[in-house]
């Protein structure tokens, strides 16, 4: 892994989010989902869904997007979620990210029942506990790279001077320190996504939710983005939940989850899955 060299630098930036366990055993894979959380003392469950259901009502038509999902995701995991469009993947994402409320079942983020939170507390959760990375990057077009990165810090109440220093460190981390004053329109897709990653990390979240982070990128820049994500996962123990179709992503992740028709179709550890060229086990594309 590439992380070893920059490890001390990263520790200096965000010491508190880097748990000792992930540092000493970076390659350790989590136990498969059905295993009890006690399997690793330091690996607590960070996201738990219990019989998660979501139905959308449009007029008289009721669409059941999720039909009882039970999942457990542990700290420091890198989990890839796969599934055809309309499978409920996005809905699961919204639930786990605290962006939408379920119609049935429960979502716990870091042991907190999301349904119990007020709008303001949800904003707090989104601001500090979760970082979002979108397929379309979703950078604020009229802000420079640095302003984009420091905006969530402003929402968290960080002073402008501290935000500037930390923003520059984050930009350095994604390799864009020299381009801090550029606006999104002046950057390539890969660079924009790297800024988006720096922005997602602004308030030292525990969870990174990535929605097809490489979907709009070519092979080379996609790889750079993935490497940064993997690096964050290994060195800071950030839990990464990633919806993807990218086979390289499958290569990097700890666990894979297939969703179809609002149910978990398959859940597997990386080493249980065989990947063949152009075709992935059980996944017809």
């Amino acid at each position: 892994m590439t992380g070893r060299k920059t490890q001390t630098g990263l520790n200096r930036i965000m010491p508190e989010t880097t748990s000792p366990t992930t540092l000493t055993e970076p390659a350790a894979l989590p136990a498969p989902a059905p295993a009890p959380p006690a399997a690793g003392a330091a690996r607590r469950v960070i996201i738990r869904t219990l019989n998660l259901r979501k139905a959308y009502v449009k007029g008289t038509v009721v669409t059941e997007a999720l039909r009882g999902l039970d999942t457990e995701i542990h700290t420091g995991e890198f989990i890839a979620i796969m599934g055809p469009s309309g499978s409920g993947k996005s809905t699961y994402f919204n639930m786990v990210g605290g962006l939408d409320s379920p119609t049935g079942g429960r979502v716990f983020i870091d042991e907190v029942d999301v349904a119990q939170l007020t709008a303001v507390e949800l904003a707090f959760l989104r601001c500090r506990k979760i970082g979002y990375i979108f397929q379309q990057f979703n950078l604020i077009q009229y802000q420079t790279a640095l302003e984009n990165v420091t905006t969530p810090m402003a929402f968290a109440g960080t002073g402008p001077d501290e935000a500037r220093v930390r923003g520059m460190e984050l930009l350095e981390l994604v390799g864009l320190k020299e381009r801090w004053f550029h606006r999104p329109i002046e950057m390539s897709g890969g660079q924009q996504q790297r800024v988006a990653i720096a922005r997602a990390m602004a308030n030292r979240p525990m969870i990174l939710l990535c929605d097809e982070p490489t979907g709009n990128l070519d092979l080379k820049t996609g790889r750079e983005v993935l490497e940064i994500l993997r690096q964050l996962n290994l060195e800071r123990g950030v839990t990464i939940i990633c919806a993807t179709h990218d086979p390289r992503m499958l290569d990097m992740c700890d666990r894979l989850m297939w969703i179809r028709d609002g149910r978990i179709e398959r859940l597997a550890r990386r080493d249980e899955v065989t990947i063949s060229i152009g075709k992935i086990n059980n996944e017809s594309e």
Binding site: L99, F124, R126, C127, Q141
Partner: peptide
Amino acid sequence: FREIATLKCLGALDGF
């Protein structure tokens, strides 16, 4: 829409 939603994802309050 997208920008507003992104801001809310980043922790912006409705009031903001």
